[in-house]
Amino acid sequence: MAFLARFGAPVRGFLEFLGDQAHLVLRTLRHALLLRLDQMAVVGGLTKLQIRFTGLDALWLIVGTALLLGAVTLIQAFSQLSGLGAENYIGVLMVLIILRELGPLLTAVLIIGRSSTAIAAELGSMQLNGEVDALAAHGINPYQYLLLPRWLGVLVSLFALVVCFDAAALAGGFLVAKLKYAVTFGFYMDSVRQTLSNRDFVATLLKVLLFSGAISFQACHFGLRIRRSQTEIPQAVTKTVVSALVAVFALDGLIAALFYF
């Protein structure tokens, strides 16, 4: 029995966590549908702020990372496949490695590092300062005022950043291809276009939708659970990062299996 109890407790804890997350998502969506037109202006303003912090402020980090990654991917590919007509596989390599997998995944990881930590810490300190109580007491629905704009902001930012990441990675790859094999831009883009399919677009959109939910709702969940002291804030931030990373990698594997297996 002791063995079963030891095994059962974490399983039960995990299932409770999943239940809490589902509850948070469903309540936020339900309250989003109840928003009035005048409230949308307030929520829209907060969403714009979140887009600025999560999207605009991270743009150069994402573009720089993607440029280097695109270039390094083709440098490594050419070093291994030289003599085997590597230039013919440029499009396949870029689509398989960058656009399908690393683009959405690395962008999500960078957003977890920059924004989910900030959201968890901000909501935690709001909770300790009585700000969440003050909102609820004065008729300001915390699902509409706190959760919805953060999720929408992360969703829009993640989508825009994935597009920028993919574009910058393709640019980095093109620079290497041009310098190494004097590949023209037309040939490079044709090669990428031929490998890309509608399925890739749908898979990327699904990833953006699910990753943004996993990142923002887990940050909100851990941030809003803080009740007593400042020392809970770093613990909540750590839990947010670990939990969001696990969720993003698990969702990525699931989508890859669903679309490409």
């Binding site: 300062n129 700000e131 109580d133 003050a134 609820a136 007491a137 004065h138």
Partner: peptide, 16 residues
């Protein structure tokens, strides 16, 4: 929310 108008003055904190 939206049905009963409540005002709560907290002893400490409570301001955004």
């Amino acid at each position: 929310a939206g049905r009963v108008s409540v005002g709560f003055a907290f002893a400490t904190g409570g301001l955004l």
